[in-house]
């Protein structure tokens, strides 16, 4: 009888231990969305939606146009939505970054990355709000190491002006 509680405690101990390990090893994050992108449009109206990403201090990501064809350019994409026309993203001018031992400077984005997105509301489709899935694909580096390319999924919101 006395063995039952002890066994339960041991089982609890062995079950909980791996979770304590996972809890303390968070995956490294390089980019965050500054705030959920949102735009208000009247039917027929076109405007620029600004999508802002914060690139963590000490890191940069490859620009949308890279000088070395081997590198992976940043890409912002969206799913299509009936009633909306989303134009090609307009990226800011890239910074130059010189890496130790690499001859040509790299074209990169750092700090805050603001991408303009032309959006036109063609038809409200009877909606008050469109929620569009976006994907940000980027390859992060720091001064001495590059990391696997990563995807960042988020939503952008287009509200219909009443």
């Amino acid at each position: 009888m006395n063995y039952l509680p002890r066994n339960n405690i041991l089982i609890f101990y062995f079950l909980i231990l791996p979770f304590t390990a996972f809890a303390q090893v968070e995956e490294r994050r390089f980019v965050e969305l500054k705030s959920e992108p949102e735009l208000r449009l009247a039917p027929g109206e076109q405007n620029q939606l600004i999508v802002s990403f914060l690139i963590k201090e000490g890191y940069h990501i490859q620009a949308n146009r890279v000088k070395d064809e081997n590198l992976i350019p940043t890409k912002l994409s969206f799913e299509s939505a009936e009633g909306l026309r989303i134009g090609d993203p307009v990226y800011p001018q890239a910074d130059e970054f010189r890496m130790e031992g690499v001859k040509e400077p790299l074209a990169v984005f750092g700090d805050t990355l603001k991408i303009q997105l032309p959006v036109k509301l063609i038809n409200t489709m009877g909606k008050q709000r469109f929620l569009i899935k976006g994907q940000f694909y980027y390859q992060p580096c720091d001064a001495s190491k590059c990391y696997y390319p990563r995807e960042f999924d988020f939503n952008l919101s287009i509200r219909v002006k009443q």
């Binding site: 070395d68 081997n70 590198l71 992976i72 890496m99 031992g101 690499v102 001859k103 790299l106 390859q139 580096c141 001495s144 190491k145 590059c146 390319p149």
Partner: peptide, 10 residues
């Protein structure tokens, strides 16, 4: 990897 600028430099 092919996309690693350090690897390409090396």
């Amino acid at each position: 990897t092919t996309w690693c600028p350090f690897c390409n430099a090396e």
